[in-house]
Write a protein that binds this DNA or RNA. Structure first.
Lengths: 137, 137
DNA sequence: CTGTGTGCAAACTCTTTGCATAAGT
DNA sequence: ACTTATGCAAAGAGTTTGCACACAG
């Protein structure tokens, strides 16, 4: 089972054109086991370290970007200070709590955005992000 | 007319609880004369300098934040790298061109967002941001 | 006068980069 | 072996802060 999971990880990485190195395997396991999650480079680095996986912060950044380019992750911009990465790459939106920085998914088919004007000449819509900003009551 | 505008600026600042200093007057004039605009600290600082108004970058940052707290500006988060400030504080959304970093307003009554789930317990919706990300064709 | 604002430079945070070493195939 | 990835430490961008001086009321 552990072997099986490892093999799947390796396959996933290879399919993305990335060599299945120890670090990428370990980070991939943290990211893609279980349900969708939101991480920052810092949080993922801390998590890996806590589990005894030695990875440098620079490698975490590299890996997150490589995963993003490979379409395995998606970047979420909600706060200028830090960059979030989302393992859910499908069509969906976010709740963002400004007080604690927590990010929660909103299913893509739940929200409907209507009335988007035609984009300016020479530009095409790449994606529509909806961020529902929350505040503690 | 110039006098008149100056007096209006001063009044606007006083109303916001800010002393009408040279720098704040100058920045306010750049920001609020004419139509709505989007600036970054850098761009506004460059603009002020170009017009011969000596303002330090630190003061531009301070002023932008003070204006924002006073409700004269609104912060727009579209890119992790830099912070944009919008002189349009009303209900509206944005086109954001990832290629050149250009930000364009979308009237608030144009876009309709439907189906937003109820926020998690203990949280209240503060605002809904819609960002239509564009790419050059 | 008295308190607030400003400018400068240094500090700070998050992120990226260069280069020698290590690991993958 | 040959190539690509990693780690470290240093650089980099954007933003914030501390403190002495200047200005508004």
């Amino acid at each position: 089972m552990a072997v099986r999971a490892g093999a799947e990880q390796a396959e996933k990485l290879r399919a993305a054109g990335l060599r299945p190195t120890r670090q990428r395997m370990a980070l991939g396991r943290l990211l893609f086991k279980g349900q969708d999650r939101h991480v920052t480079a810092e949080s993922l680095h801390a998590e890996a370290s806590a589990q005894g996986v030695p990875v440098s912060l620079a490698t975490v950044y590299n890996t997150l970007h490589q995963f993003t380019e490979a379409g395995l992750l998606r970047q979420v911009v909600v706060d200028g200070a830090r960059t979030y990465f989302d393992t859910n790459t499908g069509d969906h939106h976010h709740f963002y709590c400004e007080d604690d920085g927590q990010l929660v998914d909103i299913a893509g088919d739940s929200i409907v955005v209507d009335g988007v004007p035609v984009p300016p000449r020479g530009a095409a819509v790449e994606r529509i992000d909806v961020i529902v900003r929350l505040r503690r009551r």
